[in-house]
Design a protein around this nucleic acid. Structure first.
Length: 696
DNA sequence: GATCCTCGAGTTCT
DNA sequence: CTCGAGGATC
């Protein structure tokens, strides 16, 4: 056994040496010693530490193996927000960005730092007096999850900064990612161990970083690149972003070697082209390049718009495309009988996932793109998620490939297929005799926003309809445990759960019930308007629709007249519900079959008979305000946020327009945030929304 | 009649 | 999320 003092000195020496090799290997990519030699040093330190447990320190390389699992992650509030970047998808958008920068700085030929936009996870690392103290995910930009134990296992993250002039507090921003070759090896290992493979390096990195057991993370080959600084205390900050990154490198942090200082629009485009061409040779995935105004002082002058800096932009590469074969074009039947052609594709890996289906929307679309069975097509997964067939490679079309024909009869029930003059879609006329429509109608009836019957999913509905046990929604309320227990994957436990869920759905609010009926043109919103207007199912069933249309028109005309004279307007009747919708509701209720189903549902107690009509309660403070939600909020679900806003009489709508008052943005917000910024609409995060709801 | 705004419906994959 | 169509407004 080595004596105390000598042991300490030796441990320190070994640690310094191991960290130096880590740095050489993971940061500089220039190993000085063989793997075997590294292992020997590592084991020597390990045995020394086990003999002298008092020598173990948090920054020892042996501590990178991970510790016991956490119950859950703690929230980590960022000292300064981790903003996202605006995206540019074309040279024009980059040009517009460069122009704005030039105007903002009253200068031309701006110097930029250009670097790859990694396809990984943004994180923040805090070093206090040079020692790695805390690491967190980006989250919504304001607070993320504290994943310190996991990040401690990432070998390219130094546990201690090197060099002189180490700041007292340094918060670094960067990206955790996985090299493609490491990803391949990891998947190979997963395969041999019979474990689930990851779809792409990004998902593998994300999954690894969010492990509650850091010992698992330690076995995952994660890497890190630093590219920005959040907060610094006690050090002189460089004058340019390029120097800042050089400085980070000197502190021992891995910084991307592809970074370059370029000048003006021409420099940006040159870099974009050059890096795009080298994309396949890079060891990691990138989805574009990032341009930042190089001068830090100029960055500060340009400042921020809403959630994104004005001095930087991400220039995305075009959506990844891949070629594959159309094996079949099938036709799906929707709830309303709409026939949707879907291309069944030979599985192809594009944009990070395997695509096997792509909707072709309707016959016009199929004809416009001229997609035929046997064709080789280009599949694209654009900025969003849903794959599409971009175009057909006509030169590869096999001879004799026939043009797609919409079937004359429904593939599910054989009823005639029709197309209304005014519509693009073809529909099955089988109505509820068509099993496909019946299944969809039942699923809609049970769906969360309608009657909210948990456990009544596709599998179960399929079986119930095929077995002839359920024809209409009213049949659901006659099911008992014994009926269900005979079905596949339905033991007593699940059966009683479903029966309980059906029971629980009873006495639903009128609006939900109306929506659940699945009347054409009557969605959630219209159902609410109808429920509010009639107040009870009895009154809805007794409505005189012709009189209603006449009355509605009268009020509308009267209001046009009054508007000209600037007199006070009459309350409009059923605003947002016009003749088409009224006609559709009237048609539905006219059918004896539908009335019968409604009567049965009523008898089963599915719908609340006398709804408490909300009296003229004081209007909430958000009355008249329009909200749009986008992205994922850290704590609230979309539904919760919507409910909170509506409780104050605010309105949540789907798309951003000039009438929108607030856009509430979470992480991974999409085009709606971009549009909000274009229109100069106030953007809130979750915290700001909650404050607004509290009345600030 | 034109234009803007909303709502409804359909869709993919993990 | 996107498209298409209905409804409101000028």
């Amino acid at each position: 056994m080595v004596a105390g003092n000598a042991a300490q000195a030796l441990a320190q020496k070994l640690r310094a040496e191991l960290e130096r090799h880590n740095h050489q290997y993971y940061v500089l990519d220039q190993p000085l010693v063989s793997d075997a030699e590294y292992d020997r040093l590592f084991r020597e330190l390990q045995s020394l530490e086990s003999e002298h447990p008092e020598l173990v320190s948090a920054d020892s390389p042996t501590q990178r193996v991970g510790g016991a699992p956490l119950p859950e992650f703690e929230q980590f509030k960022h000292r300064s927000p981790m903003l996202s970047l605006n995206n540019a998808f074309s040279a024009e958008e980059v040009m517009a960005f460069d122009k704005r920068v030039c105007e903002g700085l009253k200068a031309s030929d701006i110097e930029y730092l250009a670097e790859p936009k990694f396809d990984g996870l943004a994180i923040s690392l805090t070093y206090t007096r040079g020692e790695f103290a805390q690491g967190a995910t980006r989250g919504d930009g304001y607070s993320g999850e504290d994943v310190t134990p996991n990040l401690r296992t990432v070998k390219s993250i130094p546990l201690r900064l090197i060099g002189t002039a180490i700041p007292g507090l340094l918060e670094i921003r960067g990206e955790v990612l996985m090299y493609r070759r490491d990803f391949d090896r990891l998947n190979e290992r997963q395969r041999t161990n019979g474990e689930k493979e990851f779809v792409n390096p990004r998902n593998a990195a994300a999954g690894s970083l969010r492990q509650l057991d850091s010992r698992i993370t330690a076995r995952r080959p994660l890497r890190f690149f630093a590219y920005a600084v959040g907060t610094v205390d006690g050090a002189v900050v460089p004058k340019t972003h390029a120097e800042l990154e050089d400085w980070l490198e000197k502190l021992g942090l891995p910084v991307c070697p592809e970074r370059r200082v370029v000048t003006g629009m021409q420099g940006l485009m040159q870099y974009y082209g050059a890096l795009g061409a080298r994309r396949p040779e890079l060891p990691y995935d990138i989805d574009g390049v990032v341009y930042k105004v190089n001068s830090i002082a100029a960055q500060a002058r340009l400042g921020y718009v809403a959630r994104a800096p004005r001095f930087a932009i991400a220039h995305k590469f075009p959506a990844e495309e891949a070629n594959t074969e159309v094996q079949a074009i099938e036709v799906q039947v929707g709830r309303t009988g709409a026939l949707t052609p879907v291309a069944r594709l030979k599985p192809v890996f594009v944009g990070g996932v395997t695509v096997t289906n792509a909707t072709l929307h309707n016959l016009d679309q199929v004809r416009a793109k001229d997609v035929r069975v046997g064709d080789t097509v280009v599949v694209r997964r654009a900025g969003d998620v849903i794959p599409e067939v971009a175009r057909v490679l006509l030169e590869q079309r096999p001879s004799g490939a026939a043009e797609f024909q919409m079937p004359g009869a429904c593939p599910d029930c054989g009823a005639k297929v029709e197309r209304l003059e005014s519509e693009a879609v073809y529909r099955c006329t089988g109505g509820l005799f068509c099993p496909a429509q019946r299944k969809q109608a039942l699923l809609h009836f049970a769906s969360r926003r309608a009657m909210d019957i948990e456990g009544l999913g596709e599998k179960l509905v399929d079986q119930l309809v095929e077995a002839g046990m359920v024809h209409t929604p009213s049949d659901l309320y006659r099911l008992d445990i014994a009926d269900l227990a005979g079905l596949e994957r339905m033991a007593d436990k699940s059966a009683s759960n479903v029966v309980a869920a059906i029971e629980k759905s009873k006495r639903a609010a009128l609006a939900r019930f109306i929506f659940a009926l699945g009347i054409y043109h009557v969605g959630e919103e219209v159902a609410k308007i109808l429920a509010r207007h009639f107040g009870s199912l009895a009154k809805l069933l007794a409505a005189d629709w012709e009189a209603l249309i006449a009355e509605k028109e009268r009020v509308q005309k009267e209001n046009t007249r009054r508007r000209h004279k600037e007199e006070t307007l009459l309350a409009p009747i059923l605003p947002g519900v016009g003749p088409e919708i009224i006609q559709s509701v009237a048609n539905f209720l006219e059918q004896p079959h539908n009335r019968e189903v409604i009567e049965q549902l009523r008898t089963s107690g599915a719908v609340s008979e006398d709804e408490a009509i909300p009296e003229d309660r004081p209007r909430g403070m958000l009355a008249g305000k329009n909200f749009v939600l986008t992205g994922t909020l850290p704590n609230l679900s979309r539904e919760e946020a919507k409910a909170l806003i509506e409780a104050q009489d605010g309105k949540v709508v789907g798309s951003v327009s000039g009438k929108t008052d607030y856009v509430v943005a979470g992480s991974e917000a999409g085009s709606k945030l971009v549009k909000a910024e274009e229109l100069g609409i106030a953007v809130l995060n979750e915290i700001e929304l909650l404050q607004l709801l509290k009345g600030n």
